[in-house]
């Protein structure tokens, strides 16, 4: 971490790790020995698998409504039935099926958002770190500007302007959440940019794009993956907040944030309607965070707490 960054950038980069090349073997040994990482990875893998196999594992059509069978409690309740293991929602749709399809939406939003924001942030960060000087000043100022914008508010306003939809939410979040990528890749690139092999590459006349692609990017991959993981959790939470406020994903899509939002009306008398998606969301975010934290510990052992 450079000493000269403004407080704002520091706050954004709290969780960033110094770059370090790590051998595959240390990585594997490290991961296996890291309880949090393993637990997170298993839960995350399970959720991803279920989401991918949604049409195979979902017991019902998540959109098929039956108003005569509304708000059936989950199976552990005395009034529950095995036909709807997690009960039904306010329109009589199978809750388990909606939850399973909802995982797809949340994961899709998380991963595509990170793809967009990661590309933007890495481009900015690498340029700033590699070229330094004026370029760095301009790009740092860009990051500072982005941090000055209240993220939830700007996301809500932009979602309202582009029209609330799945694509809209992804684009808005992707264009907003690149700051941490930029901060982390900038610091990582700075450290490598001064190294001998970069100087050597320059000396033999490698073009700048080539140096960036073949020398820098592979070497900042570790911190990049860590940030991507943590930002994915961030994006999923923000989508949930947007949907909760009514400007995110729109019905009848079953996003978990939307399910919580729709369930809150029933939270006093049918609490499972809100508890089930909330617990699912917490598990997903927790798993992703554990993986992210674990990866950081494993790839940058000197930063391990």
């Amino acid at each position: 971490m450079s000493e000269t960054l403004p407080s704002a950038l520091k706050a954004a980069s709290l969780d960033q790790a110094p770059p370090r090349r790590s051998a595959l073997s240390t990585f594997l040994v490290g991961s296996l020995g890291h309880g949090g990482l393993m637990a997170g990875a298993i839960v995350l893998a399970a959720i991803v698998l279920i989401a991918l196999a949604a049409p195979l594992v979902a017991p019902h059509d998540p959109y098929a409504q039956n108003l005569a069978r509304r708000l059936i409690p989950p199976v552990w309740d005395a009034r529950g039935t095995w036909d709807h293991i997690l009960g039904t929602d306010k329109l009589g749709r199978d809750y388990l099926s909606r939850l399973i399809y909802g995982a797809r939406i949340s994961l899709l939003i998380g991963s595509v958002t990170v793809l967009i924001s990661g590309t933007i942030g890495t481009a900015i960060g690498v340029c700033a770190g590699y070229f330094g000087g004026r370029v760095d000043a301009v790009l740092s100022y860009l990051v500072t500007t982005r941090l000055a914008l209240p993220v939830v508010l700007v996301a809500l306003a932009s979602a309202a302007l582009v029209g609330s939809s799945l694509q809209g939410v992804i684009v808005v979040l992707g264009l907003l959440l690149w700051d941490r990528f930029a901060v982390v890749t900038r610091a990582a690139t700075q450290q490598i940019a001064g190294s001998d092999y970069i100087a050597a590459a320059k000396a033999i006349g490698c073009s700048t794009p080539r140096i960036v692609l073949t020398e820098i990017l592979p070497n900042i991959l570790n911190p990049l993956i860590v940030v991507a993981t943590l930002e994915m959790a961030h994006a999923i939470l923000l989508e949930a907040a947007l949907s909760f406020l009514g400007l995110g994903v729109q019905p009848p899509l079953p996003s978990w944030g939307l399910m919580i939002s729709e369930g809150k009306q029933y939270m006093f008398f049918s609490p499972w309607v809100i508890a089930i998606p909330a617990v699912a969301l917490v598990f997903l975010v927790l798993a992703i965070n554990l993986v992210g934290d674990g990866l950081r510990d494993v790839t940058a052992p000197e930063n391990r707490n």
């Binding site: 959109y63 409504q65 306010k90 029209g163 019905p251 009848p252 729709e262």
Partner: peptide
Amino acid sequence: EREYAEAVIGYLDAVGIKAKLNF
């Protein structure tokens, strides 16, 4: 009455009309 609108969307869906809710 968001649930009324969502029920309508569900019925429209059943005949092939994909309606998106703007609440």
